[in-house]
Design a protein around this nucleic acid. Structure first.
Lengths: 228, 228
DNA sequence: TAAGCTAAGTGATTGAAATCACGAGAAATG
DNA sequence: CATTTCTCGTGATTTCAATCACTTAGCTTA
């Protein structure tokens, strides 16, 4: 049986770095669930019933307008906590969370979550840190979409962000598993523009791609594009 | 001397609804400061030295690119807490906070803040709620900029948000103290487009303005514009 | 292996908003 | 109160990305 007490994400994220007793409390009061690709943890507008701690896999966090326009806020992975802001503010979920790569997640029912926060001070501090991460993701998305003048600039910025992330994990290249459509949703543009922008970057040797592997050849040029 | 213990915002916001002992601790360990219009509490990139709890007045929370492009995240007022996410994540400030209307603010030095969070469980839960508010503001901004297709739509959406806010305070109209330039910074567009959009709305009797007072005449039309 | 489906690439067209440029009015400032 | 500095309003021009409309390529799955 999977337990929080021997989780290797310990220390990295808000709810994975709790004290032993809080973790034991989590182990006895929550269950681990498996979710296949395509399943939805919760939808925008849903009344929250639980928060989720991702143990493995990747999920897409998005919001959309009635007209079908979609904004992808971020791609979350192991250690990230989903649905906490709605749980804390007693409001409905403001985002939809959909599984991209098969996931294992710890499910924390609302009532249990509130008890956890009430009884374990490090849990509420952990919650604050989780919220800080959520905030940062939303802020970065707002910044990404607002600041660079052109769609091409936003795509450039996104690639730079990915490259920085890849570097942190000491990877030589970026693994781009998103479709152009999804990239468009993260950069407030259209699929065609993403395709064209990437084509142009390839032609001008600013990036190179082999399948899902994307390598940044001239970061300076991307910087310049994204700043304009 | 101004004290948190007899603050009338009690209950409304994260740090204004602490227990008596936590408030007493705040009163003895932090000071109230006055800031005139135009002063800056902190700047993007600054290393944080304190968090601020607004007692009165209004401030502008923004971020900008080197090229001078500016994004206004939100206008904060009484009860809001500024600079908490940077304090909690041990990172630099990600935003600039500038005073719009003369402010009184409680200044919480970092060291004191950490002690407060460590020793008073309701303070860390309060911090989590503050972060949830920050998150919501950033999320709403991202949504505002990403989802409506056109600049005109974004301006429409912003006016609707203001109108909802005004209604909550049972005001008959929206008091718009921002310049067109600032509205442009909130909607990722240009000053001219804001001017033209508002002119058009006035001409088509969708809104009406008398000085800073803005009245929404046809909310349905605004809804439609913002959704397109 | 063929059919069917989704993703990616690309051209043509067009329209909406950025940009540039200027003037009038309001408000701050000395 | 005179002057300088913001703010707002508008026209003319241009550009660049959205949209429409196909084709091509790569994967499923029947």
């Amino acid at each position: 049986m999977t337990k929080c007490q021997n989780c290797r994400h310990a220390g990295k994220h808000g709810f994975c770095s709790l004290g032993e007793d809080a973790k034991a409390f989590m182990d006895t009061n929550s269950v681990t669930m498996e979710y296949p690709r395509g399943s939805v943890l919760f939808r925008e507008g849903d009344r929250p019933s639980a928060a989720f701690v991702l143990c493995s896999g990747k999920v897409k966090v998005s919001a959309s307008s009635r007209e079908g326009r979609t904004m992808i806020l971020r791609i979350a992975d192991a250690g990230d906590v989903l649905g906490l802001s709605a749980a804390l503010t007693n409001g409905d979920h403001e985002v939809t969370v959909e599984v991209l790569e098969p996931c294992r997640a710890r499910v924390l029912p609302l009532k249990f979550l509130h008890n956890l926060l009430r009884d374990y001070p490090d849990a509420s501090l952990g919650a604050a840190k989780v919220l800080a991460v959520d905030y940062r993701a939303a802020f970065d998305e707002a910044r990404l979409v607002s600041l660079p003048g052109s769609p091409a600039g936003r795509v450039a910025r996104l690639i730079l962000d990915w490259a920085a992330e890849a570097k942190k994990n000491s990877a030589a290249f970026v693994t781009m598993t998103l479709t152009h459509e999804e990239v468009a949703s993260m950069t407030a543009t259209t699929r065609e523009t993403v395709t064209r922008t990437l084509s142009k970057m390839r032609k001008e040797k600013v990036i190179s791609t082999h399948g899902v592997a994307l390598t940044v050849l001239q970061p300076r040029v991307l910087e310049q594009m994204s700043a304009c």
